[in-house]
Computed example of a mutant assay.
Amino acid sequence: MSDNELLNAARDPEVHACTIGDVEHDYRPHIVVAAYGPGRPRTYLRCVWCHAVACGNYGETDPCIEPWHHEPKPHRTRSGVSWPIGGNRAEEG
């Protein structure tokens, strides 16, 4: 797997080291062509420094910004919305 395709989860040491000192991940859209099979690209939110993939999906409004597989931390968005792992995000209204 090339560096361009590297997708790290919360358990990876690079992901933890990236946020030492309360620094947030710098997620940007990242396209991986072979993620779902030949010719079917997928866009992830991936940190430009440590290659952590965000829990929330690209294209969601205010997605979860914790790294993929971030148990036991609750889900959390940039706007401050949070909800428990396995729970449902509260409807805003």
Rank of each mutant, 00 (worst) to 15 (best):
S82H: 08
P84W: 01
S79D: 13
A17F: 02
T43S: 06
T61P: 00
P41W: 02
H16I: 15
N8G: 05
G39F: 01
A9F: 10
C47H: 06
K73Q: 10
H16A: 10
S79I: 13
D26A: 11
W49K: 07
H25N: 09
H70D: 00
D62Y: 03
I31A: 12
P72S: 00
A34Q: 03
T43L: 09
G39R: 05
R42D: 04
Y36M: 12
D22H: 14
C18P: 14
H25I: 15
N8W: 02
L45M: 15
V15T: 07
V33A: 14
K73I: 00
V81N: 03
I85Y: 02
P29W: 13
G37P: 03
N57K: 12
C47L: 10
H51Y: 10
V53S: 13
W83H: 00
S79G: 09
P74S: 09
A52V: 02
V48S: 10
I20D: 07
I65W: 01
D12Q: 09
P74Q: 02
V48L: 04
I20M: 08
H75Y: 05
T19C: 11
G21V: 08
D26H: 10
V33D: 14
G59K: 05
G87E: 02
H30C: 15
A9W: 10
P67D: 07
H25Q: 14
T61W: 03
V23G: 11
P41D: 02
C55V: 08
I20P: 04
C50F: 04
R28N: 08
I31L: 13
D26G: 06
V32S: 12
P74L: 07
D26Y: 09
